Simulated scan of single mutants.
Amino acid sequence: MAEQLITLDEFWSLRDQFPVIDARSEKEFDQSHIPGSINIPILNNTERIQVGTLYKERGPEEATIKGFELVGPRFHLIIKDTVKHFPEKKVIIYCWRGGMRSHILAWLLTMVGFDIFRLKGGYKTYRTYSFDLVRKDWNLIVLGGKTGTGKTRLLKKLQETGEQIIDLEGLANHKGSSFGAIGQPAQPSVEQFENEFAETLHKLDPKKSSWVENESRKIGRLILPDNFYHQMLASPLIDIYRTEQERINLIVEEYAGLPSDELILAVLRIKKRLGGLRTSEAIQAIVEGNHEAWISNMLVYYDKAYNFDLDKHESGKTIQLDLSGIDEETSTKKLLEAKSQFHGKHTDSTD
Protein backbone atom coordinates (compact mmCIF):
# COMPACT_ATOMS: atom_id res chain seq x y z
CA MET A 1 0.00 0.00 0.00
CA ALA A 2 1.04 3.65 -0.01
CA GLU A 3 1.86 6.69 2.09
CA GLN A 4 0.39 10.08 1.22
CA LEU A 5 1.49 13.42 2.67
CA ILE A 6 -1.49 15.61 3.58
CA THR A 7 -1.84 19.28 4.49
CA LEU A 8 -3.65 20.51 7.59
CA ASP A 9 -6.65 21.47 5.43
CA GLU A 10 -6.79 17.92 4.09
CA PHE A 11 -6.39 16.58 7.62
CA TRP A 12 -9.62 18.28 8.74
CA SER A 13 -11.60 16.56 6.01
CA LEU A 14 -10.00 13.13 6.56
CA ARG A 15 -10.00 12.91 10.36
CA ASP A 16 -13.69 11.96 10.50
CA GLN A 17 -12.99 9.04 8.18
CA PHE A 18 -9.79 7.58 9.65
CA PRO A 19 -8.23 7.18 13.12
CA VAL A 20 -5.27 9.38 14.04
CA ILE A 21 -1.96 8.10 15.47
CA ASP A 22 0.51 10.23 17.42
CA ALA A 23 4.01 8.74 16.99
CA ARG A 24 5.66 10.97 19.61
CA SER A 25 6.80 9.86 23.07
CA GLU A 26 4.38 9.28 25.94
CA LYS A 27 5.44 12.47 27.74
CA GLU A 28 4.91 14.62 24.66
CA PHE A 29 1.49 13.06 24.13
CA ASP A 30 0.46 13.55 27.76
CA GLN A 31 1.47 17.20 27.62
CA SER A 32 -0.67 17.87 24.55
CA HIS A 33 -1.86 16.19 21.37
CA ILE A 34 -4.43 16.40 18.61
CA PRO A 35 -7.74 15.55 20.34
CA GLY A 36 -8.94 12.06 19.53
CA SER A 37 -5.51 10.74 18.54
CA ILE A 38 -3.99 7.53 19.95
CA ASN A 39 -0.39 7.36 21.09
CA ILE A 40 1.86 4.71 19.50
CA PRO A 41 5.37 6.01 20.27
CA ILE A 42 8.27 5.17 18.03
CA LEU A 43 10.73 6.32 20.70
CA ASN A 44 9.71 6.21 24.36
CA ASN A 45 10.55 9.02 26.80
CA THR A 46 14.05 7.78 27.67
CA GLU A 47 14.96 6.89 24.08
CA ARG A 48 13.83 10.27 22.80
CA ILE A 49 16.19 12.01 25.22
CA GLN A 50 19.07 9.77 24.16
CA VAL A 51 18.51 10.40 20.45
CA GLY A 52 17.94 14.12 20.96
CA THR A 53 21.16 14.50 22.94
CA LEU A 54 23.12 12.59 20.30
CA TYR A 55 21.62 14.76 17.55
CA LYS A 56 22.85 17.92 19.27
CA GLU A 57 26.30 16.53 20.08
CA ARG A 58 27.15 14.46 17.00
CA GLY A 59 24.65 15.30 14.29
CA PRO A 60 21.66 13.71 12.52
CA GLU A 61 23.40 10.66 11.07
CA GLU A 62 24.52 9.18 14.37
CA ALA A 63 21.22 10.13 15.98
CA THR A 64 19.29 8.32 13.24
CA ILE A 65 21.44 5.20 13.56
CA LYS A 66 20.96 5.24 17.34
CA GLY A 67 17.23 5.62 16.90
CA PHE A 68 17.04 2.51 14.71
CA GLU A 69 19.27 0.63 17.16
CA LEU A 70 16.87 1.44 20.00
CA VAL A 71 13.55 0.91 18.29
CA GLY A 72 14.46 -1.80 15.77
CA PRO A 73 13.97 -4.73 18.16
CA ARG A 74 10.44 -3.47 18.82
CA PHE A 75 9.33 -3.12 15.21
CA HIS A 76 7.32 -6.35 15.29
CA LEU A 77 5.56 -5.30 18.51
CA ILE A 78 4.64 -1.90 17.09
CA ILE A 79 3.20 -3.53 13.97
CA LYS A 80 1.21 -6.09 15.97
CA ASP A 81 -0.18 -3.42 18.29
CA THR A 82 -1.22 -1.16 15.42
CA VAL A 83 -2.87 -3.95 13.44
CA LYS A 84 -4.78 -4.95 16.58
CA HIS A 85 -6.10 -1.44 17.10
CA PHE A 86 -6.73 -0.59 13.44
CA PRO A 87 -7.70 -3.73 11.51
CA GLU A 88 -9.07 -1.67 8.59
CA LYS A 89 -5.49 -0.51 7.97
CA LYS A 90 -6.18 3.12 7.09
CA VAL A 91 -4.76 5.73 9.46
CA ILE A 92 -3.49 9.30 9.76
CA ILE A 93 -0.05 9.64 11.37
CA TYR A 94 1.83 12.60 12.83
CA CYS A 95 4.88 13.30 14.98
CA TRP A 96 6.38 16.61 16.13
CA ARG A 97 7.34 18.07 12.73
CA GLY A 98 6.14 15.31 10.43
CA GLY A 99 9.68 13.97 10.15
CA MET A 100 11.60 10.87 11.13
CA ARG A 101 9.30 9.27 13.68
CA SER A 102 6.09 9.47 11.67
CA HIS A 103 8.05 8.51 8.53
CA ILE A 104 9.42 5.38 10.22
CA LEU A 105 5.99 4.38 11.50
CA ALA A 106 4.48 4.97 8.07
CA TRP A 107 7.22 2.85 6.46
CA LEU A 108 6.62 0.02 8.92
CA LEU A 109 2.87 0.00 8.42
CA THR A 110 2.89 0.23 4.63
CA MET A 111 4.95 -2.98 4.67
CA VAL A 112 1.95 -4.80 6.16
CA GLY A 113 -0.68 -3.26 3.89
CA PHE A 114 -1.66 0.00 5.56
CA ASP A 115 -2.82 3.10 3.70
CA ILE A 116 -1.10 6.01 5.46
CA PHE A 117 -1.95 9.70 5.46
CA ARG A 118 0.98 11.51 7.08
CA LEU A 119 0.44 15.08 8.31
CA LYS A 120 2.89 17.46 6.69
CA GLY A 121 4.53 19.60 9.37
CA GLY A 122 3.23 17.29 12.09
CA TYR A 123 1.85 18.38 15.43
CA LYS A 124 3.71 21.68 15.21
CA THR A 125 1.51 22.70 12.26
CA TYR A 126 -1.65 21.74 14.14
CA ARG A 127 -0.52 23.52 17.30
CA THR A 128 0.26 26.74 15.42
CA TYR A 129 -3.25 26.63 13.98
CA SER A 130 -4.94 26.00 17.36
CA PHE A 131 -2.84 28.67 19.11
CA ASP A 132 -3.86 31.27 16.54
CA LEU A 133 -7.52 30.23 16.39
CA VAL A 134 -8.23 30.76 20.11
CA ARG A 135 -6.75 34.25 19.80
CA LYS A 136 -8.85 35.41 16.85
CA ASP A 137 -11.84 37.73 17.10
CA TRP A 138 -15.21 36.05 17.62
CA ASN A 139 -18.79 37.29 17.63
CA LEU A 140 -19.81 36.47 21.21
CA ILE A 141 -22.87 36.85 23.36
CA VAL A 142 -22.20 36.25 27.05
CA LEU A 143 -24.62 34.41 29.33
CA GLY A 144 -24.24 35.75 32.86
CA GLY A 145 -25.93 35.10 36.17
CA LYS A 146 -25.02 34.34 39.76
CA THR A 147 -24.00 30.87 40.93
CA GLY A 148 -26.91 28.44 40.67
CA THR A 149 -28.89 30.17 37.92
CA GLY A 150 -28.36 27.18 35.61
CA LYS A 151 -26.25 28.86 32.94
CA THR A 152 -24.58 25.66 31.72
CA ARG A 153 -27.93 23.90 31.37
CA LEU A 154 -29.29 26.82 29.37
CA LEU A 155 -26.25 26.76 27.10
CA LYS A 156 -27.06 23.15 26.25
CA LYS A 157 -30.69 24.07 25.60
CA LEU A 158 -29.57 26.88 23.30
CA GLN A 159 -27.38 24.44 21.40
CA GLU A 160 -30.40 22.16 20.91
CA THR A 161 -32.17 25.03 19.13
CA GLY A 162 -29.29 25.34 16.67
CA GLU A 163 -27.40 28.12 18.45
CA GLN A 164 -23.61 28.05 18.53
CA ILE A 165 -22.14 27.65 22.01
CA ILE A 166 -18.68 27.50 23.59
CA ASP A 167 -18.72 25.45 26.80
CA LEU A 168 -15.55 26.70 28.49
CA GLU A 169 -16.21 24.86 31.75
CA GLY A 170 -16.75 21.61 29.88
CA LEU A 171 -13.49 22.07 27.97
CA ALA A 172 -11.64 22.95 31.18
CA ASN A 173 -13.14 20.09 33.25
CA HIS A 174 -13.95 22.64 35.93
CA LYS A 175 -17.05 24.57 37.03
CA GLY A 176 -15.11 27.70 37.87
CA SER A 177 -15.33 27.87 41.68
CA SER A 178 -13.48 26.37 44.63
CA PHE A 179 -15.95 23.47 44.32
CA GLY A 180 -15.57 23.28 40.54
CA ALA A 181 -13.15 20.36 40.31
CA ILE A 182 -15.18 17.97 42.47
CA GLY A 183 -16.47 15.04 40.46
CA GLN A 184 -14.67 16.24 37.32
CA PRO A 185 -11.84 14.57 35.35
CA ALA A 186 -8.39 16.05 35.81
CA GLN A 187 -7.89 19.37 34.08
CA PRO A 188 -5.86 19.28 30.86
CA SER A 189 -2.62 21.17 30.40
CA VAL A 190 -2.94 24.76 29.18
CA GLU A 191 -1.80 23.65 25.71
CA GLN A 192 -4.26 20.77 25.56
CA PHE A 193 -7.08 23.04 26.77
CA GLU A 194 -6.32 25.39 23.90
CA ASN A 195 -6.33 22.45 21.47
CA GLU A 196 -9.76 21.31 22.71
CA PHE A 197 -10.94 24.94 22.64
CA ALA A 198 -9.75 25.30 19.04
CA GLU A 199 -11.57 22.11 18.06
CA THR A 200 -14.82 23.74 19.21
CA LEU A 201 -14.06 27.02 17.45
CA HIS A 202 -13.13 25.22 14.22
CA LYS A 203 -16.71 23.91 13.98
CA LEU A 204 -18.29 27.36 14.42
CA ASP A 205 -19.32 29.82 11.75
CA PRO A 206 -17.38 32.99 12.68
CA LYS A 207 -20.03 35.14 10.99
CA LYS A 208 -22.66 33.98 13.48
CA SER A 209 -22.81 34.79 17.17
CA SER A 210 -21.71 32.17 19.70
CA TRP A 211 -22.97 31.93 23.27
CA VAL A 212 -20.41 31.62 26.05
CA GLU A 213 -20.91 31.51 29.81
CA ASN A 214 -19.59 34.47 31.77
CA GLU A 215 -16.28 33.40 33.31
CA SER A 216 -13.41 34.98 35.15
CA ARG A 217 -10.04 34.90 33.43
CA LYS A 218 -9.11 31.76 35.38
CA ILE A 219 -11.04 28.47 35.29
CA GLY A 220 -9.48 26.25 37.91
CA ARG A 221 -5.77 26.38 37.12
CA LEU A 222 -6.32 27.24 33.45
CA ILE A 223 -6.17 30.79 32.13
CA LEU A 224 -8.17 32.00 29.14
CA PRO A 225 -6.20 33.59 26.27
CA ASP A 226 -6.08 37.35 26.88
CA ASN A 227 -7.72 38.34 23.62
CA PHE A 228 -10.66 35.99 24.09
CA TYR A 229 -11.20 37.10 27.69
CA HIS A 230 -11.20 40.79 26.71
CA GLN A 231 -13.66 39.98 23.91
CA MET A 232 -15.98 38.49 26.54
CA LEU A 233 -15.78 41.67 28.61
CA ALA A 234 -16.61 43.81 25.58
CA SER A 235 -19.41 41.58 24.24
CA PRO A 236 -23.17 41.84 24.87
CA LEU A 237 -24.14 40.26 28.20
CA ILE A 238 -27.49 38.77 29.16
CA ASP A 239 -27.52 38.63 32.96
CA ILE A 240 -30.14 36.16 34.18
CA TYR A 241 -31.85 36.19 37.56
CA ARG A 242 -33.48 33.45 39.61
CA THR A 243 -34.61 33.53 43.23
CA GLU A 244 -32.16 32.47 45.91
CA GLN A 245 -34.28 29.40 46.74
CA GLU A 246 -34.28 28.30 43.09
CA ARG A 247 -30.52 28.68 43.00
CA ILE A 248 -30.05 26.73 46.23
CA ASN A 249 -32.28 23.94 44.92
CA LEU A 250 -30.25 23.64 41.72
CA ILE A 251 -26.92 23.58 43.59
CA VAL A 252 -28.27 20.95 46.01
CA GLU A 253 -29.20 18.84 42.99
CA GLU A 254 -25.66 19.08 41.60
CA TYR A 255 -23.54 18.95 44.77
CA ALA A 256 -25.44 17.15 47.56
CA GLY A 257 -24.32 13.74 46.35
CA LEU A 258 -20.62 14.62 46.26
CA PRO A 259 -18.17 13.38 48.96
CA SER A 260 -18.42 15.53 52.10
CA ASP A 261 -14.65 15.51 52.67
CA GLU A 262 -14.10 17.09 49.24
CA LEU A 263 -16.78 19.70 49.91
CA ILE A 264 -15.07 20.57 53.20
CA LEU A 265 -11.68 20.92 51.47
CA ALA A 266 -13.30 23.27 48.95
CA VAL A 267 -14.62 25.43 51.80
CA LEU A 268 -11.19 25.47 53.46
CA ARG A 269 -9.55 26.64 50.20
CA ILE A 270 -11.44 29.93 50.48
CA LYS A 271 -11.27 30.22 54.26
CA LYS A 272 -9.37 33.53 54.19
CA ARG A 273 -12.06 35.13 52.06
CA LEU A 274 -14.97 33.58 53.97
CA GLY A 275 -13.71 34.35 57.45
CA GLY A 276 -13.43 31.95 60.37
CA LEU A 277 -17.06 32.01 61.52
CA ARG A 278 -18.60 31.49 58.10
CA THR A 279 -16.10 28.70 57.36
CA SER A 280 -16.92 26.88 60.60
CA GLU A 281 -20.66 27.19 60.00
CA ALA A 282 -20.37 25.85 56.46
CA ILE A 283 -18.25 22.87 57.52
CA GLN A 284 -20.64 22.02 60.35
CA ALA A 285 -23.58 22.13 57.93
CA ILE A 286 -21.77 19.80 55.49
CA VAL A 287 -21.02 17.33 58.30
CA GLU A 288 -24.69 17.39 59.34
CA GLY A 289 -25.87 16.97 55.75
CA ASN A 290 -27.67 20.31 55.87
CA HIS A 291 -26.94 21.21 52.25
CA GLU A 292 -29.24 24.20 52.03
CA ALA A 293 -27.43 25.81 54.98
CA TRP A 294 -23.87 25.52 53.67
CA ILE A 295 -24.90 26.47 50.13
CA SER A 296 -26.74 29.55 51.38
CA ASN A 297 -23.60 30.41 53.35
CA MET A 298 -21.40 30.10 50.27
CA LEU A 299 -23.71 32.20 48.10
CA VAL A 300 -23.03 35.25 50.27
CA TYR A 301 -19.39 35.10 49.20
CA TYR A 302 -19.95 34.07 45.57
CA ASP A 303 -22.62 36.72 44.99
CA LYS A 304 -20.19 39.43 46.05
CA ALA A 305 -17.52 37.99 43.76
CA TYR A 306 -19.98 37.87 40.86
CA ASN A 307 -21.01 41.50 41.32
CA PHE A 308 -17.35 42.47 41.31
CA ASP A 309 -16.75 40.61 38.01
CA LEU A 310 -19.94 42.03 36.51
CA ASP A 311 -18.57 45.56 36.90
CA LYS A 312 -15.71 44.67 34.52
CA HIS A 313 -18.05 44.32 31.55
CA GLU A 314 -18.40 47.12 29.08
CA SER A 315 -21.22 49.44 30.12
CA GLY A 316 -24.34 49.75 28.00
CA LYS A 317 -24.20 46.18 26.71
CA THR A 318 -26.07 44.33 29.47
CA ILE A 319 -29.65 43.08 29.54
CA GLN A 320 -31.14 41.93 32.85
CA LEU A 321 -33.47 38.96 32.36
CA ASP A 322 -35.66 37.60 35.17
CA LEU A 323 -36.20 33.85 34.72
CA SER A 324 -37.69 33.20 38.16
CA GLY A 325 -40.20 30.36 38.18
CA ILE A 326 -39.73 29.68 34.46
CA ASP A 327 -38.84 26.26 33.04
CA GLU A 328 -35.77 25.74 30.86
CA GLU A 329 -37.77 25.58 27.62
CA THR A 330 -39.42 28.96 28.21
CA SER A 331 -36.16 30.41 29.56
CA THR A 332 -34.42 29.45 26.32
CA LYS A 333 -37.05 31.26 24.26
CA LYS A 334 -36.66 34.37 26.41
CA LEU A 335 -32.88 34.25 25.92
CA LEU A 336 -33.33 34.13 22.15
CA GLU A 337 -35.70 37.08 22.36
CA ALA A 338 -33.14 38.98 24.44
CA LYS A 339 -30.43 38.11 21.94
CA SER A 340 -32.46 39.74 19.17
CA GLN A 341 -32.07 43.08 20.95
CA PHE A 342 -28.34 42.83 20.22
CA HIS A 343 -28.27 40.79 17.00
CA GLY A 344 -31.59 41.35 15.28
CA LYS A 345 -34.54 39.00 14.93
CA HIS A 346 -33.87 35.36 15.80
CA THR A 347 -34.56 32.90 13.02
CA ASP A 348 -34.81 29.20 13.67
CA SER A 349 -31.94 27.13 12.18
CA THR A 350 -34.49 25.14 10.15
CA ASP A 351 -35.87 28.23 8.35
Rank of each mutant, 00 (worst) to 15 (best):
E3P: 00
S260G: 04
L158Q: 08
A23Q: 02
E62K: 10
F18K: 02
R101A: 06
F86H: 11
G150P: 05
A338K: 05
K175W: 01
E169P: 08
E62N: 08
L277R: 09
M1V: 00
H230K: 13
T125L: 08
L277H: 09
L105V: 03
L8N: 10
G170Q: 04
K271M: 05
T350N: 14
L277A: 10
D115Y: 00
K218E: 08
L168R: 05
F228V: 06
E57S: 07
Y241H: 09
Q341M: 12
E57W: 06
E163Y: 06
P185Q: 12
K156E: 13
D205S: 14
G36D: 10
K339M: 12
R242Q: 07
E160P: 03
H313A: 09
F342M: 10
T7D: 06
I326N: 04
Q245D: 09
L201T: 03
L70W: 09
I65S: 07
Y123S: 04
L265Q: 12
A198E: 04
G180V: 02
H76W: 02
L233C: 12
I248C: 00
F197K: 03
H33W: 02
L14T: 06
V91T: 02
E47G: 07
T350D: 15
L335T: 12
R153L: 15
L274D: 01
K56I: 06
K56Y: 11
A266R: 00
A186K: 15
S25R: 03
A23V: 05
R135H: 15
L105K: 01
G99P: 06
F308V: 14
N290V: 00
V134K: 12
S340M: 07
G121R: 13
L233I: 14
Q284N: 03
I93W: 01
V112I: 12
E57Y: 05
G183W: 08
T200M: 14
N249G: 08
E69R: 14
S235P: 01
L133T: 13
V51D: 01
I251P: 00
L77M: 10
K136L: 11
S13W: 06
L237P: 03
K271I: 03
S210H: 09
N249S: 13
Q17D: 15
N139M: 09
L5P: 04
E163K: 05
I78D: 02
I65R: 14
K89G: 01
T243E: 11
L222Y: 04
S102H: 06
K203S: 15
L70I: 13
V71K: 02
R247G: 01
Q4E: 13
R221S: 10
S209D: 11
H103K: 15
R127Y: 05
Y126D: 12
K89W: 00
K317E: 03
R135L: 07
K124G: 09
L77E: 13
G180M: 04
P35F: 10
R101N: 06
M100Q: 14
L268P: 03
L321K: 08
K304D: 07
K304A: 08
G150E: 08
M1Q: 00
W107I: 00
E254R: 03
A172S: 04
K304I: 06
G220E: 05
I38W: 03
V20F: 01
V252H: 01
K208T: 11
K207Q: 13
R127S: 09
G316N: 11
G162I: 06
R127H: 12
N173L: 10
D348Q: 11
L109T: 00
Q159Y: 14
E69A: 10
